[in-house]
Structures are given as structure tokens and as C-alpha cells.
Write a protein that binds this DNA or RNA. Structure first.
Lengths: 144, 144
DNA sequence: TAAAAATGGTGGCAACTGCCACCATTTCAA
DNA sequence: TTGAAATGGTGGCAGTTGCCACCATTTTTA
């Protein structure tokens, strides 16, 4: 008997948890957890960001980013440079070691989507991507 | 500046986290966390299940379900009846208190989907639901 | 300009989850 | 039928996340 998913809430939970398991396994060899990998990814995409900018781009709580950034600095994947213009903030940049794992992470993240959509047509896959983005953006709207 | 979602991986993370925050807030008044609410939901849907059946229906690790069921039993939301046919298992049923929160949980879970799809047309919403289910089912396929 | 508010960041706590080792029981196979 | 494998469940540990209280700094405002 197959336990087919019946509710969107459950589907989203399953997709989230499975893709994080895949990313964890894919990045374990590089010494990175899934959450750390995502931060490296966004950091390499933008070259340099403050913690607050990372927080907004990933829409995670700022304390979560603080902890992840600390771990990544300890692991030598990024550097915090104090910002002379605003002493409250750091400029955060990937190190050489960070750049080295960037291609792997990009590939793993794209692989997750490919894997969960392998039974979709090209058209369905594009539509799924569009609707996911629309839903996520709607979620981020300020409350009224 | 709006930080629009660009990758499906990120979209799924955001949708998962936001919907769990919504469900947590919606169920806090009933003395339930989001994970507990989902177990009550599936239990009331099927009237009686073993832990293993809950595990399969939610595709969560069995130890996660064990912990949640323990908490729910302590909270008086469900009962474990030892199963005479197989002494390894319990039959788990909602109590009266469990049944009382069922309608609220159902409403909250449906509200999550309505909320994230509020900018979609009816057609898009149906298609999104279908594609989510397809992706989640694909994810659950045995590896080959 | 001084007080108040906003911003960026940190640390603690709790909830959720996955993985693993383990136990008891049941099922399967030699 | 007995030993091995599978099944259902538990407990510990670690990773991810959100919320809150708090601090330092910057910006706003009265």
C-alpha cells in the first residue's frame, strides 16, 4: 500500500525535509551541514553581505544566521570584516575555501529540484517553479 | 527593496517554515505545538493507528513520532492501547479532548494553504496542489 | 543636542527532526 | 523447531529553526 500525499501542508513538509536530507548528504563530504551550505551559496552569489542582508535574503531569524556564520567562520569558509561605516555590522565574504565548495553546493541544490520533479514534464516543472516562487513571495508579504 | 525568491529550494524552505509558524500560532491556544497538531489530525482522520502507521503516513522518522505521541498522551489528547495481536505495538486513538481540537486543526491547516495561495487563481491553486503532491510522492519513491 | 527609537548582532531556551544503537517481539528459513 | 532476520518502539545526540531578552551603535525626533 502506498501512502499517497493528500494535503499540500504534508507535501510541503515532506519536500522540505527530504531536500534537506539530500543536501546534508551531498555536502557532508565538504564538511558542511545543509544550513551552512545555503549560507555559503548566498554569500558567493553576492560576494559580500552583512548578516542582516543574509537574514533577509533567506528569511530566517537573525539569530539563526548569527550562529551559522560563527560556525562557518570557525570552519574557515568565510571572513567577517568589521565595517568602518557602521560599527554594528560586519562585511562577510567567502574565503578561498568557501569558493571551492560553491560549485558543489550549487549542483546539489539544483539536483534536489531535479530529483523531486523527475516525473514532471518540462512544462510542469517550469510551472511548479513559478508557483513555488509565487507562494513563497506571498508568504513574505507584510501582514495587513 | 524586495527579496524575491529565486530558487525552488529556498521557496520550499520558506513555505515550510512559514506554514509551521502559522500552525504553531493557530494551535497554541489549544495547548498544541505544530508537530503535535499534525499527529492529532492524522489520528482523527483514521480513528486508530499504530505508531508505525503514523510514521508512514507522515513519512517522519519513527523516533520523532514516538516522542510526539508520548507528549500527546501526557497532554491527554490520545490513548495507547496495548495490542493483544502483536505485543510490540499499540493502538493509538484520540481521546474526547483530541476530538475537540480536530476541527480547529483542520481549519488551521487548510488556512495555511489558502494563505500562501491567496494571489493565485483557482486554476493555479489546483495545479499547485497537484504538483506539490506529485513532487512529494516522487520524493517518497524507493531509490533505484 | 539629548532622549527615544530603530537597527544589527549575540546568547539562551525550546520545538522539530534525523540518525543511530538498542530492546522486545514476531516472522521467516534452514 | 530453532536460529536469523524483520518489525515496532525507545532514548540519546546533533542540527535547524524561532522567539525572546539583551547589548552596542546609529538614526530620528522633540
Amino acid at each position: 500500500m502506498s501512502y499517497t500525499t493528500d494535503s499540500p501542508f504534508k507535501s510541503i513538509s515532506i519536500l522540505y525535509r527530504k531536500s534537506h536530507i539530500w543536501l546534508s548528504n551531498g555536502c557532508a563530504g565538504a564538511g558542511l551541514t545543509a544550513a551552512q551550505a545555503v549560507v555559503i551559496l548566498i554569500l558567493c552569489d553576492f560576494r559580500a553581505l552583512t548578516q542582516d542582508e543574509i537574514t533577509k535574503r533567506l528569511s530566517l531569524d537573525k539569530s539563526v544566521i548569527a550562529k551559522t556564520v560563527t560556525k562557518l567562520e570557525e570552519g574557515g569558509f568565510l571572513l567577517r570584516e568589521p565595517n568602518p561605516r557602521d560599527k554594528r555590522t560586519y562585511q562577510i565574504r567567502p574565503t578561498e575555501k568557501g569558493w571551492q565548495v560553491y560549485p558543489l553546493i550549487k549542483q546539489e541544490v539544483e539536483g534536489c529540484f531535479a530529483r523531486m520533479t523527475q516525473r514532471m514534464s518540462e512544462t510542469e516543472r517550469a510551472e511548479f517553479r513559478r508557483l513555488l516562487a509565487l507562494a513563497a513571495d506571498t508568504t513574505l508579504e507584510p501582514e495587513e
